[in-house]
Amino acid sequence: MPSKKRGAKRVNPLASAPKISAEATSSKRASIAKPLSEEEMRMVAKKLRRHIITMTATAGSGHPGGSLSSVEIVTTLFFNVLRHDPKDPRWPERDRFVLSKGHGAPVLYSALAETGYFPVEELLELRKLNSRMQGHTDMATTPGVEMTAGALGQGLSFGIGIALAARLDSRDYRVYVLLGDGECDEGQVWEAAMAAAHYNVDNLVAIVDRNRQQIDGWTYEVMDTEPMAEKWRSFGWHVIEVDGHDLGQILPAFNKAKRMKGKPTAIIAHTIKGKGVSFMENNPDFHGKAPTPEEAEKALKELE
């Protein structure tokens, strides 16, 4: 395999990542967890929400709102869609999940912890000095994190690069990029949308967390991104719209995307910012503000 030759030559900058072993280059491996049922996923989703509340409250800062809106999407991906191996985060054949909205770090860390990339207790290290739970995602630090993010609008382009590498290496992995809808204000998102269709990368799926809120308020007030679905369609994408909290709709959308050949798929997931906690839902204050200890207690009660 060319990848083995490469591996020998280069110094791996990801010090925490395990070495790629010879058997790891096979696309079939035993350690992939079995898919969860919808009911099991519902339980996992609740658990992730509790983690998001606990870790941001403990950190005293962070972005709970956009993490809570992405919970069902991330749960479906990590527990039912992605071909991945938490024991070997750099497995070359893995499907990649790129969190373009890097402030959604809490939901990603929660999913990574629950699938076994690192201990769940480590979530409480969020935003602490030298911890692996950086404020925004950092590929050089955290096992399972595919991209350093935080400055918005760049993940889809990064995902194209990974998708093209699959083509060059004749690998069949897929790339899933989660974007915020406010993030779609960034011009680079549309550079990438144009390029992905141009290169016909059908192993690429963009998921837009359409929670309709950004820091300064409703997206239609700050910068109107409608008609969102039509935009993606006109850029040459296969577009699916789902209720982003309905597990029964999300999984079929990913399966449909897998069957689409010749063009990339955009899943517009209609969600609610702060979903699952009554006083955080549709409240832009909780975009970038952690719950107080009292609020966290109240939130966790709602998530029992």
């Binding site: 991209m147 382009s157 990064f158 194209i160 690069g161 590498a165 060059l168 680079q188 550079e191």
Partner: peptide
């Protein structure tokens, strides 16, 4: 030609694509 990608007049996109390719071992 199969290892060359013209990104058009979109330098930001090009640099992030470059990063994605590099993250995949290129």
């Amino acid at each position: 030609p199969e290892r060359f990608f013209d990104c058009g007049i979109a330098e930001q996109n090009m640099m992030s694509i470059a990063a994605g390719l590099a993250a995949s071992g290129k």
